[in-house]
Design a protein around this nucleic acid. Structure first.
Lengths: 260, 260
DNA sequence: GTGTTGATGTCGGAC
DNA sequence: GTCCGACGTCAACAC
């Protein structure tokens, strides 16, 4: 089951659902009246009130009040969450090893609780660094290889945006994925998804037109690449080009600002 | 009604529920597959994936992925949220006036959506940071050393605010810089800047008045100090006093008792 | 409003 | 691990 939800659960139901969610590494969401105690780098307490609690599969633990972007209390990723019942009351507890920190949530009344098995393979693309790299390649396509001609930027597909689309000197389609830092396995998976799309298209074109076969080349562009990423890359017949991102424009700007 | 919840809603149902939640200033929670575009101080895009969206009555807008404490995209309090349907697709949009920022969420598939009218009158009581440390020292100056008398708090200088200014039992000026965590090299540099100011002043006073020379002592107060910081400290003849920040809540559980 | 500073900052990268 | 810098930092407070 992809998700599970309970309205006005009793303590045992709620305990079971949260335990199940934790076991399955789901996102768990609790709307309840609770009291919170935190001990660690600082010390805090928050008396009973209605809040939203969010437990993430990476161990993150967030308690949100009705205002502000930041959670009122939280624990970082890799914290360990535990549930227990004491005096007919459900508690959530989160421990962090180092620095030693503890979060304790006493739950009085729950409106509803749910967990969801989340599928999210996308990473945030933020303009700035990577954008600069794209700008540079659009301006100097020979950096990729002789005869490379970029045709599209941020080309939209069903699986997401392709950073740069172009053709090599033979006329083969090239799908470029840019990373401004060391490329990980996710970068390779990403480019693989794009390629799947294009290869399907390519095959149907072939059937229709009988043209001579053009290849679709996947090319990962990054300053370096991780070991696991390299493996998948070779397996999938994707190419890799090592290019450093253009030297920081941000710093230059900041220096200028500091001067004034 | 205190809350409302829909599983697998269709677009119109979802639109209505969110509009109702916005009108009633509720906390709104959406578990869905969505795509996010942000334009403002930076520029970002996040392709389709499953996430949790949280809209708060103060205008805050959070999009949480399955990892990290921080939301992947967000808008701050006082942003204005708008919903609209285009091409049979539901969009959430959030505008901020200044700086001009826009967040656009395209929703593909929603697992469930709910709103809750939250009642939370409590504020976080927190202890263990720099202000508490300053309070403690002002209240118990002997913690620094016998005969220490603080004279000013947040004393303004050309280079910034001195946390605590005072005099030792000999009448020498003391410049205290407080850190509630392990002090790094920056803390030492900071105190060094303040000292430079005072020593210049001291010298000009000497010339003018011919008074006997009083020293200016710099004192870094922190629970501990890093190695590089220690080096610069000794080089600059700045002193160090190890003090842990107080971790006592002011109204220690009294609030709870008062309520009953 | 603009500006400055502290924070359980968080997060990522380098050593 | 620890240290160091960047961040759409956020949020509180002063001016």
């Amino acid at each position: 089951m992809k998700y599970k939800l309970l309205e006005n659960p009793n303590i045992e139901e709620m305990y079971d659902l949260i335990e199940e969610g934790l076991r399955k590494k789901a996102m768990i969401n609790v709307f309840c009246c609770c009291k919170v105690i935190y001990e660690g780098r600082a010390l805090s307490q928050l008396d009973f009130g209605e809040r939203m609690i969010l437990l993430k599969p990476d161990g993150s633990f967030l308690i949100h009040q009705e205002r502000k972007v930041d959670p009122v209390n939280w624990q970082p990723p890799k914290s360990r969450t535990r549930t227990f019942i004491k005096d007919n009351t459900l508690f959530l507890e989160s421990h962090r090893r180092s620095p030693k920190e503890r979060l304790e949530v006493e739950i009085k009344k729950t409106h509803f609780v749910n967990y969801v098995l989340v599928e999210d393979y996308q990473e945030l693309e933020i303009a700035g660094y990577e954008k600069d790299m794209g700008d540079m390649i659009m301006k100097h396509p020979h950096m990729i290889e002789e005869g490379f001609k970029p045709t599209d930027r941020e080309y939209s597909t069903e699986h997401g945006f392709i950073d740069i689309l172009g053709k090599d000197k033979e006329g083969n389609l090239m799908v470029l994925e840019l990373k401004c830092r060391k490329a990980g396995i996710n970068a390779v998976k990403q480019i693989r998804r794009y390629l799947t799309d294009f290869k399907e298209e390519e095959n149907s074109n072939l059937e229709n037109t009988g043209n001579e076969k053009k290849k679709v080349r996947g090319l990962l562009v990054a300053p370096s690449i991780g070991e696991d990423a390299r493996e998948l890359l070779e397996e999938e017949n994707i190419e890799f080009k090592s290019i450093d991102p253009p030297k920081e424009l941000k710093n230059d700007k900041k220096v200028t600002l500091d001067i004034f």
